[in-house]
């Protein structure tokens, strides 16, 4: 299949996923389950990664700016901006693409190869809607919170690491993260996280939904889901940065 055919089939699938639900209550129940499976269960990994990345960013910035003319609080400022602008949305999205994307593709792919999707269709249920819509909504709704958590934990990690390594004092760090603060950066990051959440869930669902074959193909679908979500995220990161920051 060519790229264009994939995009066409993907668009049709997403359109089907947003068709009117047969029964709202059934979709709502799934939404709650997916919020737990995709969102709540990702909080742990987001916290761990954000903490260490915040720490590394701060220490690296400190060592790269060992210039007596630059005030130390700039380290805090630089760490803050990296975390807000790129880290809390893009890097977290890439991590989630690995965790959530493979999960979605293998779940839906298994349902495909064991004919569970056919079973839904034969009952007169829109399988794309029932399986995919709740996943998209769940992650889109929770991604901004994950992003906020990542910001807070990342900045905290930077502070703890910076102070323990003796490259910056608490006072300087706190001054730094407040200095020339642009609140729009947070909005920017949250917007990106929502779009990335949509990409991860829809692209991974696409790969799962069109799995053909058996267990081997389910594995392939789940790998492809991660790779393709990541590429699309990076591509859109470029576009969004241009659109939102220029």
């Amino acid at each position: 299949m060519t790229l264009l055919e994939h995009i066409g089939r993907y668009s049709l699938l997403v359109k089907r996923a947003f068709a009117r639900p047969e029964k709202h209550k059934m979709y709502y129940i799934r939404l709650i389950r997916e919020m737990e499976a995709l969102g709540i269960n990702s909080v742990g990994i987001v916290i761990i990664i954000s903490f260490f990345m915040g720490a590394v960013i701060t220490i690296q910035t400190a060592y790269n700016t060992e210039n007596p003319l630059l005030p130390a609080y700039l380290i805090g400022l630089a760490a803050r901006d990296s975390i807000l602008l790129e880290f809390s949305s893009t890097i977290v999205a890439l991590i989630l693409a690995g965790k959530v994307g493979s999960r979605i593709a293998s779940e839906i792919g298994t349902m495909r190869v064991t004919e569970q999707i056919d079973a839904l269709e034969i009952m007169g249920v829109n399988s794309a809607g029932y399986l995919i819509l709740p996943k998209i909504l769940a992650l889109v709704m929770l991604a901004p919170f994950l992003s906020l958590i990542s910001m807070v934990v990342g900045i905290t990690g930077g502070w703890i690491a910076g102070v323990s390594a003796g490259v910056i004092t608490t006072n300087e760090y706190v001054t730094g993260i407040q200095f020339a603060f642009i609140p729009y950066y947070i909005t920017y990051s949250l917007i990106k996280s929502v779009i990335f959440a949509f990409i991860i869930t829809s692209v991974s669902s696409y790969h799962g939904y069109f799995t053909a074959g058996g267990a081997l193909e389910v594995g392939k679908a789940s790998t492809l889901a991660v790779v393709h979500s990541s590429i699309v995220i990076l591509l859109f990161n470029l576009i969004l940065t241009q659109l939102l920051l220029s």
Binding site: M111, T114, E115, Q116, A119, I122, G124
Partner: peptide
């Protein structure tokens, strides 16, 4: 098709129960 399928009952060869 969706409507008429609500009058279908189907047993798949591999059962196809929802895991």
């Amino acid at each position: 098709k969706k409507e008429i399928r609500q009058k279908f009952g189907m047993l798949f060869q591999g059962a196809a129960l929802f895991d």
